[in-house]
Structure formats: C-alpha cells, structure tokens
C-alpha cells in the first residue's frame, strides 16, 4: 500500500485515492498523420516497463483530480521523487544512488 504525496494538495494520502496511469513522459506526436503505423503503434503500446527507477504518471482521482509524475522503484516500491507535469525528473537511473 503506497503512501503518495500529492504535489497539488501538499499532503501524503493513501494509494486508494490515486489511479496509476502508466509510464510518464509519453508525448502525443505533434503531427500524427506523418507517423507510420509502426510509429503510431510504438506511441500507443510500447513501454519501457523498467525494472528499477520508473517515471510514471498518477492522478489524484478521489482528491484534486490533478495529474503528476512519480519516480518510483518498481522493485522496492520506494518513491524517490514527485514532480509536476511539464517538469523533468531529477532522480534518474543514471544519477540514482540506491
């Protein structure tokens, strides 16, 4: 049971208030029509599925309804960082100290 800090509410809340929305930073192609089927398939379905530090999107569904990003270790489930949409993570696998 994760305890998640909502950066919009400024509080730790229980996991049950949130919905996980998968890998973060997947940008919708600006010009979808110029994508090949393969590129569109990559955008739709293919994921890093990282074992270790994973940047992921969550929404405070039963709270403020705002989306935000989490950097979480998918093995230890430790949350290393919470940051806003539009920001980049400061904790990454290259820079992580476990």
């Amino acid at each position: 049971m994760l305890s998640i800090y909502c950066p919009h509410c400024g509080e730790h809340r229980e996991e049950e208030e949130f919905h996980p929305k998968g890998q973060a930073h997947i940008v919708r192609p600006l010009d979808p029509e110029s994508c090949s089927d393969k590129e569109w398939g990559q955008y739709l379905y293919f994921r890093k599925n990282t074992r270790g530090l994973h940047h992921e999107l969550w929404v405070h569904a039963a709270g403020c309804r705002k989306f935000f990003n989490i950097t979480r270790d998918t093995v230890s489930y430790e949350i290393r960082e919470v940051y806003l949409i539009g920001e980049q993570p400061s904790v990454t696998s290259d820079r992580a100290q476990s």
């Binding site: 919708r28 999107l57 929404v59 989306f67 539009g86």
Partner: peptide, 14 residues
C-alpha cells in the same frame, strides 16, 4: 470520460 478529458488537458494541452 472525465478522467480522460483531464488527462489530455493536463498532460497534452495545458
């Protein structure tokens, strides 16, 4: 649907 609208608004077209 509401969550989906919010998703696109907040992450793609803020």
């Amino acid at each position: 649907v509401l969550e989906w609208l919010e998703l696109y608004h907040q992450t793609e077209w803020p």
